[in-house]
């Protein structure tokens, strides 16, 4: 399912809303999550999962082609941990 298919589905089950509004709702939700992570905040959605930011230290990497050592800067990685309820659904429904 893509973002536009998600929007289409939601528009179908909410006929009182304009598709344009549904689109804004979906965009706002993911944009808020991204903004929170950019601030270093955690986003916890019980039953669904939690988004957080993990830190990777700077390290000495190597160019695999040339074998040359290169400095890799420290960075932040977004991380998602599946919520308990969703994890259970993945293993009980239509496999």
């Amino acid at each position: 399912m893509t973002k536009s298919e998600l929007i289409a589905r939601l528009a179908e089950s909410n006929p009182h809303l304009y598709q344009r509004d549904v689109e804004r709702i979906v965009t706002t939700i993911f944009d808020e999550i991204a903004a929170a992570l950019a601030r270093g905040d955690r986003v916890e959605l019980r039953g669904f999962g939690a988004f957080s930011v993990k830190r990777r230290d700077a390290r000495q990497g190597r160019n695999p082609r040339t074998g040359e050592a290169v400095a890799v800067e420290g960075k932040a990685i977004p991380f998602f941990k599946t919520g308990k309820q969703l994890r259970e659904r993945l293993n009980t429904e239509g496999q």
Partner: peptide, 24 residues
């Protein structure tokens, strides 16, 4: 609506379907 968004995503995943949210 927030619940519906999370619900639709969860349903798709429970069906074994991947969910792609562009730019996210």
């Amino acid at each position: 609506l927030l619940e519906a968004v999370l619900g639709e995503i969860s349903n798709a995943l429970a069906r074994g379907e991947a969910v792609k949210i562009s730019s996210f």
